[in-house]
Amino acid sequence: MVNKHFVLLSNEDNVFVCCKQLLKGSSVSLEDVDVTMTADITVGHKIARRKISKGEKIIKYGVSIGSAIEDISFGEHIHMHNMKSDYIASHTRQSKAGVKS
């Protein structure tokens, strides 16, 4: 547990996982650095542990779970809008996203 809102699953990770919801605009201290949430973050979702560049691997559980498709700033929500699978496309009810290039 980093604090009551986020957990770090592995030391190599560049994401934190939310274990208690946090609303947009609220601030939280992550490893001694204050950051303001730019979106509502609900349980199970990920935020960036540090700045991540486009093309860089997203690391969770100590392994790659895909790649950033744009630059991601510290504390930013990481999801289908800024990362993609390196294997196979994911889809939502409305559309397909993260198509392998």
Binding site: K46, I58, V63, G66, M83, K84, S85, S90, H91
Partner: peptide
């Protein structure tokens, strides 16, 4: 899965 925070198949 995506609504619950999972983004990719490998995740």
């Amino acid at each position: 899965n995506a609504e619950g925070g999972l983004t990719t198949q490998e995740e």
